[in-house]
Simulated scan of single mutants.
Amino acid sequence: MADIEEARAQFQRIDTDGDGFITAAEFKKALAQGGDWNVTDSVAEAIIAARDTDQDKTLSFDEFWAHLSKA
């Protein structure tokens, strides 16, 4: 299981505008910064959608943490 404080720090790094939600664009940018340049907009949107339990097309920290804590 992931550490919640580490997850919160990672979430905040990805949430570049600081609004408390990760968009597909922010997620794609974070992956690119990590060296994964091959992620397309549609792939980033699909990854977000797969974890987006309230279907608002963004990830809240709770959704982000729920996914990490399953691993």
Rank of each mutant, 00 (worst) to 15 (best):
62 D>A: 08
18 G>L: 11
24 A>R: 10
18 G>M: 10
26 E>S: 07
62 D>W: 07
37 W>D: 12
49 A>M: 12
67 H>A: 15
21 F>N: 14
23 T>H: 08
37 W>A: 13
5 E>L: 14
66 A>Q: 13
16 T>N: 10
40 T>V: 00
46 A>Y: 00
69 S>G: 07
40 T>Y: 04
5 E>I: 05
7 A>P: 09
42 S>Q: 14
59 L>S: 02
63 E>T: 00
5 E>V: 08
20 G>A: 05
38 N>K: 13
12 Q>L: 15
16 T>D: 10
4 I>E: 15
61 F>L: 00
10 Q>A: 15
33 Q>C: 08
65 W>G: 06
24 A>F: 03
30 A>T: 03
29 K>F: 03
29 K>T: 02
16 T>M: 14
26 E>M: 04
2 A>H: 11
58 T>W: 09
2 A>D: 10
49 A>S: 14
19 D>S: 00
18 G>T: 05
10 Q>M: 15
44 A>N: 03
52 D>Y: 01
14 I>V: 04
39 V>P: 04
45 E>M: 12
2 A>S: 12
8 R>I: 00
69 S>P: 08
40 T>H: 08
62 D>T: 04
58 T>H: 15
34 G>R: 02
29 K>W: 05
2 A>T: 09
28 K>I: 01
38 N>W: 06
60 S>T: 00
66 A>L: 11
34 G>C: 00
32 A>W: 05
11 F>R: 09
71 A>M: 13
37 W>F: 12
23 T>Y: 09
34 G>N: 01
12 Q>P: 11
53 T>V: 03
31 L>A: 03
34 G>A: 01
6 E>T: 07
19 D>Y: 05
20 G>P: 06
8 R>M: 08
28 K>R: 15
67 H>D: 12
19 D>G: 00
54 D>T: 01
17 D>L: 07
31 L>M: 11
28 K>G: 01
8 R>N: 06
6 E>L: 12
60 S>V: 00
70 K>D: 06
60 S>Y: 02
64 F>I: 02
5 E>T: 09
61 F>P: 04
19 D>R: 03
60 S>W: 00
17 D>C: 06
24 A>G: 04
32 A>R: 14
39 V>H: 05
48 I>E: 10
1 M>A: 13
27 F>Y: 09
17 D>K: 13
66 A>V: 03
